[in-house]
Write a protein that binds this DNA or RNA. Structure first.
Length: 516
RNA sequence: GGGCCUGUAGCUCAGUCGGGAGAGCAGCGGACUUUUAAUCCGAAGGUCGCGGGUUCGAUCCCCGCCGGGCCCA
């Protein structure tokens, strides 16, 4: 980026074009000195980004080796450590540094006895630099486990400063936009990443352990089906056709069941072109699973076991605290028919046979806004979402939804107008959605046609008619239980977070104006 | 989409009932051979989110826009 003698230089000898274009003026000021050091090292033939240095001990291993040692002890053992320099305290002819690696932090102790002529250079390191250091493992007079540096190297120069060490890095917007700094200085951010990895790993283990085969289905689709949501649109240049990013994995997974894959699951990202807030990111992670010869009751038991195991893995216990209130994820979970919950919320019983006009009047009476286009099912759903769902704290399977809002679920075996479906609610949030799958191709086509009518009437999230899927059903899908789990929300629950963005590494934000 | 709050130094935040801006930490110069939020001394560092309006004068008041947070839909 800077060839000496080729570019104009400033008074300080720093090439004018060496400062990143997008650094705001104040940032430049802090960056210029570090750039000067980089150029100075290069002028001396030292690569500020060298290769070839290896580590033989982690920060935590240094602490382990010093466990129980008296202050001011020399172990006679040598160790080579590497990590990011988080702090540097210069005390005249002594320098104390704090090195952070994947395992934790360890102190570097530098003096002229250890470094001789290279001592002054050590003090020129900056917070944020990646540093390699080798020396004797000791404890200082205050008892701090340390490496008494006898050799060191700059591994990578940091041109930008670290966030302040004491007041921290708290501004949510900056934390999410500069997630790498957030992870560097906020241990809680790292903890969430690790818990999430554990939860995902446990989910895989649970399904694999039950004989489910993990598969990957297309993200780019000709039609976005399997859920009721608006998709992202894109374009395939070679084929000259518009395509969509998937909103669910459901339809392809069912086609696999038709193909004899009797237990399949997919853990993956889906995309919905809708609002973003504390509980919704435009892309999120779901686990969908399909099991032949099962129904939604079997899936309920499966979900109970999986959620308990995930909590055990993430939190060490299925009895957790979320936002200050206890949540017990040990089975069995309450089973509550949706119409009963809605009837309770309205103070008047509701049945599948309740006329839509009556349902609308009850909803309005309860203060729930309605749309004239809505039928019975949509009205029930709206009342449930507004009045009943927020009150469901303990794990609850809300069961038996109106058929109108469940175009892919099988009709209830004993109640007309309902389907065999459940949604799992915990702490007021939906965590899973499952049904006994509709496997009658003739009825499925009729359901799609009803959705097409809704779409024609202006409902942009109505389900499209998918001929490929219908053709598969026409080849015969066995009775099947299907399930979707919202992985991000599960991680929120298990890490006690109320903002989805805390559990997604790089949540979507509006583009920032000036880059900094 | 609506309501409330918010945007000031690299970070965390004060502040001006309108007279043109401050602290701590970081950074810079100096002192210091046991610090770990080191300490002490010194000198710096700002388009007060952006645009417009009112005013002799706006970081402050008004309007619009942009970003963010919380709550509601």
């Amino acid at each position: 980026m800077n060839e000496p003698g080729v570019t104009e230089t400033t008074e300080s000898g720093i090439p004018e074009n060496a400062v990143p274009e997008n650094a705001v003026p104040a940032d430049r000021r802090l960056t210029v000195r570090r750039l000067w050091k980089v150029n100075h090292l290069r002028a001396e033939g030292i690569d500020p980004y060298p290769l070839g240095y290896t580590r033989d001990a982690s920060a935590s291993e240094i602490h382990d080796r010093c466990a129980g040692l008296e202050p001011d002890t020399r172990t006679g053992e040598t160790a080579a450590v590497a990590g990011r320099l988080m702090n540097l305290r210069r005390l005249g002819r002594l320098v104390f540094g704090v090195l952070q690696d994947y395992s934790g932090r360890v102190q570097l102790f530098a003096d002229e006895q250890g470094l001789g002529g290279r001592f002054a250079g050590f003090g020129e390191l900056d917070g944020g630099d990646w540093v390699w250091a080798r020396g004797e493992v000791i404890t200082t007079r205050r008892g701090e486990p340390s490496v008494h540096v006898s050799d060191y190297a700059l591994l990578a120069k940091a041109l930008r400063p670290l966030p302040a060490k004491w007041h921290g890095f708290k501004d949510k917007e900056r934390r999410f936009r500069r997630r790498e700094l957030d992870l560097l200085v906020n241990p809680e951010a790292r903890r969430i990443v690790e818990v999430r990895a554990g939860v995902v790993s446990e989910l895989r283990r649970q399904f694999e352990g039950r004989g489910f085969v993990e598969v990957e289905t297309p993200v780019l689709q000709l039609q976005a089906g399997g859920a009721l949501a608006r998709p992202f649109e894109t374009h395939h240049n070679a084929l000259g056709i518009d395509m969509y990013l998937r909103i669910a994995t459901e339809l392809h997974l069912k086609r696999l069941v038709v193909g004899g894959m009797e237990r399949v699951f997919e853990l993956g990202r889906v995309f919905r072109n809708e609002g973003m807030d504390a509980r919704h990111n435009p892309e999120f992670t779901t686990l969908e699973a399909y099991q032949a010869l099962a129904d939604y009751r079997d899936i309920m038991r499966l979900v109970e076991e999986v959620f308990e195991a995930a909590a055990q893995r993430a939190a060490g216990s299925a009895r957790l605290t979320y936002q200050g209130r206890p949540v017990d994820l040990r089975p069995p979970y309450r089973r509550a028919p949706m119409l009963e919950l809605v009837g309770e919320a309205l103070g008047s019983p509701v049945f599948p046979s309740t006329p839509p006009a009556r349902m609308r009047a009850l909803a309005e009476q309860a203060g729930v806004e309605t749309d004239p286009a809505w039928g019975f099912g949509k009205l029930v759903e709206q009342v449930f979402d507004r009045l009943a769902a927020p009150r469901l704290w303990d794990p609850t399977f809300v069961i038996d939804h109106p058929v109108e809002i469940s175009p892919l679920a099988r009709c209830h075996r004993s109640v007309e107008g309902l389907v065999e479906r459940f949604e799992l609610y915990i702490a007021g949030s939906e965590h899973a959605d499952a049904f006994t799958e509709l496997n009658d191709p003739i009825e499925q086509r009729a359901r799609f046609q009803a959705q097409a009518a809704a779409r024609a009437a202006g409902d942009l999230s109505a389900h499209p008619l998918d001929e490929d899927f219908l053709r598969a059903l026409e080849s015969g899908m066995p009775p099947t239980g299907g399930l979707g789990i919202g992985v991000d929300r599960l991680v929120m629950l298990l890490t006690d977070q109320r903002n989805l963005r805390e559990v997604v590494l790089f949540p979507h934000l509006r583009p920032e104006q000036p880059l900094r």
